[in-house]
């Protein structure tokens, strides 16, 4: 009986090792670099499977691009240089955080415009209500009656 329990426990202990991730972990000498790497592959989009960041994508090209990020960090390149490297090749599209520019102006200002429109509509409606209420009070028999 003990043997069966031991065996079951051993099997369970092995399970995470069996579930091998398709994404090979990379070695970093410095913890800062690993943090930068994690951040960068989280904010760069996989161009093949366009709704995934490089971080979680299984596409072969995503693996290549992760390797690029890794090598460039080891080469001592700054984050902005690595972002520019990607953007020079794949355009703004690879950045999950697009820059503020002419063609992205709707993206950035659209929600603000909608919010302003909503607030304005609300303000107008409240003012109208209030005015309606006031006239109703003025015209009501209670108000006109100087009791």
């Amino acid at each position: 009986m003990t043997r069966v329990i031991m065996l079951t426990l051993l099997t369970l202990a092995c399970a995470p090792g069996l579930a091998q991730s398709p994404i090979q972990p990379l070695e970093f000498q410095r913890e800062v670099d690993e943090k930068r790497y994690r951040a960068l592959i989280g904010e760069l989009r996989c161009t093949v499977c366009q709704n995934e960041p490089l971080e979680s994508s299984n596409a072969p090209l995503a693996a290549d691009l992760r390797r690029q990020v890794y090598n460039q960090i080891l080469d001592g390149r700054a984050d902005f240089e690595i972002r520019d490297y990607m953007r020079d090749r794949y355009g703004d599209f690879v950045l999950y955080d697009p820059p503020f520019a002419g063609h992205t102006i709707i993206l950035w200002l659209g929600p603000l415009v909608l919010l302003a429109a909503g607030l304005a509509t609300g303000a107008v409606m409240i003012r109208q209500r209030r005015r309606m209420l006031k006239t109703r009070v003025n015209n009501s028999p209670v108000a006109t009656n100087p009791d």
């Binding site: 161009t47 093949v48 090209l61 290549d64 691009l65 690029q68 090749r89 794949y90 355009g91």
Partner: peptide
Amino acid sequence: EIGDFGIDLGVYG
């Protein structure tokens, strides 16, 4: 073979 020139060209598929 490695695919680096493809990346330089912005090939994604």
